[in-house]
Design a protein around this nucleic acid. Sequence first.
DNA 1: TTTACATACATAGTTTACCTATGCAATAAT
DNA 2: ATTATTGCATAGGTAAACTATGTATGTAAA
Lengths: 163, 163
Amino acid sequence: MATTNDPETSADPHTGDDTDPRLRVVLAELVTNASRLTRLASSIAGGDRPRPWLRALSLLEEYGGLRISEIARLDSSSQPTATALVKQLVDAGLVRRQRDPDDSRAVVVEMTESGHHWLAAARDDIGASLAERMRDLDAERIARLSRSLHDLREFLKDPRTSG
Amino acid sequence: MATTNDPETSADPHTGDDTDPRLRVVLAELVTNASRLTRLASSIAGGDRPRPWLRALSLLEEYGGLRISEIARLDSSSQPTATALVKQLVDAGLVRRQRDPDDSRAVVVEMTESGHHWLAAARDDIGASLAERMRDLDAERIARLSRSLHDLREFLKDPRTSG
DNA sequence: TTTACATACATAGTTTACCTATGCAATAAT
DNA sequence: ATTATTGCATAGGTAAACTATGTATGTAAA
């Protein structure tokens, strides 16, 4: 056990033991609740749309053209996973691959019109399924909650440039 | 296209088209943000703990003893998935199976002491990993956010009995 | 400029987490 | 008693992820 360390000198960045214990607890609860909500929502509104497609297309919509390795990094997945995912999207006609003129090793992935339509339809479906079960909720409250989650993710991505 | 329907008579419960369009949009955004936060957090704090174990043990801690089919339902998974999951947890010594005295077809699954320890340690690790990157956040704000997500899930589970 | 290393992506092979379909035993309903 | 239903187990399959590695291109050092 390390609980007998001198509190004055125990700021070891590896263990994080100098953080607020209350914060540790509520952060663990937060991810539990976010994860459960996500799982329940996707069981209700999932349809048969591949969730990796939604993630990748959302990123491409947000950032424009992306390299394979950038997709992997932004999606917290490995490069081979991103390669396979892009292949599926190309086969489905939702994205297009182009060589980077400045670096012929690289590939730039862009959404097609069909990809934009697919993503919009997916979001409509998800929103409609959920709204049907939650029609009494206040949209502005949900919007605020959504923004909080967004901000928290930005902070988690890089604590220095946000928050 | 169904966009030319008479708005007065288009309250078809199958399509949900009578719900607030703004609500549909923000709900779709909410699940996107919750899902992305979950994914990022688990890539940071995931460790190598099986996520299904965390889900199942959290349910058992919350509800006490549960049947296989109850675990499946509460976890939004199929019964065979729950059977396999419980088998893994039994093999790891984290839960114990007992026959239901009132119904000898049924199985009641309960956490062992080891299971409680495992879950507590997992949460400590997750909380510590996240708190290390987010040490400047206000714990009470996170707690409120966490509660909102919890309440929203309760509402989504059964819109009539919560809100 | 040849050699060496780094980067970007592709491919192979494996594991994990699910699913559906089905079988079997116990209970409930007629 | 027969039939239907319920609770779980098993079989078999798919999708999404990983690591390890190969190949081609770009970069830097000798």
